[in-house]
Computed example of a mutant assay.
Amino acid sequence: MQNINWGIMACGGIAHQFALAIKKLDNCTILASASNTVGRAKDFTKKHQIPRSYNDYQSLVNDPDIDAIYIASTHNFHFENIKLCLKHGKNVLCEKPFTINAQQAKILIRLAKTHNCFMMECVWTRFLPAIEHLKQLLAQNIIGDVHTVKANFSICDNFPPEHRLRNKNLAGGALLDLGIYPLTLAAIVFGEHPSRIQSSAVIGKGGVDESSCYLLEYEHHQRAILSASFIEEAPTEGVISGSKGYIRIPDFIGAQELHIKLENQTEKVFSFPFDEDENFTFEVSHAMHCMRENKKQSDILPLDKTTAMMTLMDTIRSQWGLKYPDE
């Protein structure tokens, strides 16, 4: 089996999760990491025993031994970082949100085709075994006609004003960072194209949404009632309700259980456990399978679904009048 040599672009917190995932997988190696912050890449390579470190991204993409690059930079840099990788013929795995808007995503898709590169957005929830099983259950109509999806993702850590979540210059806000997960659950159940979109947001002093809610309506009177926040405590949970029962997904972001309650029956629990350092193994394994098969995009999260999600979030932000400096 082809060994895939990875490079990591940006060495923040989420890059450590990626490095742990690679260690769990066969036939792949992290060959190099790069950071624009002096010393950070060196510290990162030492911690994860990576052979090479670079103090700039250009050196990383110039490395001829690297097959694919994982991009872990803040949202506002994704577009330029992906573009740099593609122009140097590197396959790309980029953290969500893929870009800050759909226009940027479409430009990158054309560029990936021009340079014949594989490219995929990292939305790790989509690749989890529990979510794969959920899709099978829904296809079997186990809860009958599905009417409603309810989902929330909230965290509350008293983030300081300079934190990336509060920073408009870094494309911060609850929607792009947290809200994409409830929106993803709705997309898995109902598809990518709601017929009506309503939303509201609490815009903080930093100019971004600190808390936001989204009501999506679909054909056949189906609805998704979704929310995200980094200023309040609330359960991170998804519930899919149908005519014959419901499926409850505790911590649906990293789903390991499906709780199924059908009419006149006791609740059943389906478990799909994995260790914390295996969080990203499912999406990374899938991406490498695609590369080895010479595919240029994922069949679980193809690029048209990524573009549809960016378009949806563009529409939601437009309802609040929220634009980022790069737009």
Rank of each mutant, 00 (worst) to 15 (best):
A228N: 14
A308S: 08
T184S: 10
I240N: 05
A105Y: 11
N116F: 14
M1R: 13
L216I: 03
P273K: 07
M291P: 05
S212I: 03
I188K: 06
I300P: 04
D209P: 00
A32P: 10
I14S: 03
D43T: 10
A41N: 04
A287Y: 06
Q265K: 11
D275L: 14
T29Q: 15
K47T: 15
I300W: 09
F118S: 13
A112N: 10
P250H: 08
A255T: 05
I188L: 14
M119A: 13
H48S: 09
I71F: 00
Q103L: 04
T266C: 03
G238W: 06
M119S: 15
M313C: 11
Q136A: 10
P160F: 12
V123W: 06
E278D: 15
D209S: 11
Y181C: 02
R166E: 11
P97Q: 13
A102G: 11
I30W: 02
W320E: 07
S35P: 05
T266G: 12
F127S: 04
D63Q: 04
I249K: 00
V208R: 01
E267P: 05
K46A: 14
D157T: 00
G179M: 05
M1L: 14
T74V: 02
K305P: 00
R126W: 13
F153L: 09
S229R: 02
L216Q: 08
I253C: 01
T29I: 09
S73H: 00
A171Q: 06
K244H: 14
A68S: 06
D299I: 07
L258S: 09
G89L: 10
E162W: 09
I180T: 04
K24Q: 15
P160Y: 13
I143T: 01
A174V: 02
G204A: 08
T266W: 06
C28G: 12
H78P: 00
F18E: 03
D67S: 06
G179K: 05
H221Q: 13
A34I: 08
A234L: 04
S53Y: 15
F153K: 07
C28L: 13
T311W: 01
S229T: 07
C28H: 13
L176T: 03
T148C: 01
K87C: 05
T114E: 15
L262S: 10
G245W: 07
Q319A: 12
E210G: 05
S195Q: 15
D277W: 05
D157M: 04
K83V: 01
A174F: 01
D67A: 06
I247M: 05
H220W: 07
L137K: 08
I4M: 09
V61M: 04
M313P: 01
P194I: 13
R52P: 00
L111A: 12
I231P: 01
F230H: 06
H163G: 09
N152F: 08
Q49T: 15
I143D: 03
T29G: 04
F190G: 12
A32Y: 09
F18P: 00
L25A: 12
G191K: 09
K24F: 11
E232S: 12
S212D: 08
S212R: 02
